[in-house]
Lab assay of single mutants.
Amino acid sequence: MTSCHIAEEHIQKVAIFGGTHGNELTGVFLVKHWLENGAEIQRTGLEVKPFITNPRAVKKCTRYIDCDLNRIFDLENLGKKMSEDLPYEVRRAQEINHLFGPKDSEDSYDIIFDLHNTTSNMGCTLILEDSRNNFLIQMFHYIKTSLAPLPCYVYLIEHPSLKYATTRSIAKYPVGIEVGPQPQGVLRADILDQMRKMIKHALDFIHHFNEGKEFPPCAIEVYKIIEKVDYPRDENGEIAAIIHPNLQDQDWKPLHPGDPMFLTLDGKTIPLGGDCTVYPVFVNEAAYYEKKEAFAKTTKLTLNAKSIRCCLH
């Protein structure tokens, strides 16, 4: 018999989150649709729960009410004593943790798909938090293969000092899905179709896995975050240069030392320094102006996964 890495157990509980950011409308629209008619997301033997994560922000069509829901799922915020004085999103995070967690427990949901849009030209993107997770690498390989020839990129946010504390991190297997470009507060049919297909293929993978299909060893190309880059700023902290036209919409493309990065209003080009080629992502993302992030630098690498098969009882 072929030796293989056996994944822990079959997958039982899956959640699909929309509206973690209330103005990213593809996930909101799909989740609302699936709450009314969820036939397309159901798979035999699998509990799939669509869920609106930040209903107040969705109602106002804004990213958040008090603070970013997708950055506060750490033990400090989840452990705060519940009171009306807490920011709305912290209270909501505790409610979500109660419903789908608790985080880092045996009772937490197996998989959470968190649906997002970006204003950046990132196409279909899967966000991975753990480079050693054979199950998710296999799932992402399946999704990428199923979507081809449509490109699907994998963004690895594993980093020693950049801690995200994402909404989906309460699950055993957290999956971020990011599709763009799409303006905030807008629905685009092409973007919706791409996100819908990503979810379909992900659920198909889980179904095949649960039925005992063995997935042979595989490898995927990923883009691992190195650092986030702020806009150049003046002495008052105001933005002093904008994304250069040569960099705009060039997510995932190589940016070499000396290539144009920013452009000042008086026409001066600010190039990339250093001696390493990087791959920019979230270029000129609207939501990241407040976070002082013009783009993120990534490096390209390959992740390998062992063969996996479900432990059938």
Rank of each mutant, 00 (worst) to 15 (best):
E8Q: 14
H10P: 13
I11W: 02
Q12K: 14
K13S: 10
A15G: 12
A15T: 03
N23L: 03
N23K: 05
E24Y: 06
L25K: 12
G27F: 02
G38N: 11
E40Q: 04
T44F: 15
T44Q: 14
G45E: 06
E47K: 14
F51I: 12
N54H: 10
Y64S: 15
I65N: 06
D66M: 05
R71H: 08
D74Y: 08
L78N: 10
D85H: 14
D85V: 11
E89R: 04
V90K: 08
R91P: 11
E95W: 14
H98S: 11
P102D: 14
D107P: 12
D107K: 09
S108Q: 10
I112L: 13
I112V: 14
H116W: 01
N117H: 00
T119W: 01
N121Q: 06
N121Y: 04
M122R: 03
L128Q: 03
N133H: 05
F135M: 05
L136Y: 01
Q138R: 01
S146Y: 11
L150T: 13
I157L: 13
A165R: 12
T166W: 10
T167A: 15
P174C: 12
V175F: 01
G176D: 03
I177F: 10
G180S: 00
G180F: 02
P181A: 05
G185D: 03
L192P: 03
D193V: 06
R196H: 03
M198D: 00
H201Y: 14
A202M: 03
I206Y: 00
F209M: 04
F209W: 15
K224V: 04
I225N: 09
P232F: 03
G237I: 01
G237A: 05
A240E: 11
L247C: 03
D251C: 10
K253A: 13
P254H: 04
L255I: 13
H256Q: 13
P257R: 04
D259I: 03
T264R: 08
G267F: 06
K268S: 10
L272F: 10
C276L: 10
V278E: 03
F282L: 12
V283N: 01
E290T: 13
A296I: 12
K297I: 14
K297W: 05
N304I: 10
A305C: 06
K306W: 06
K306F: 09
I308C: 06
R309V: 08
L312C: 14
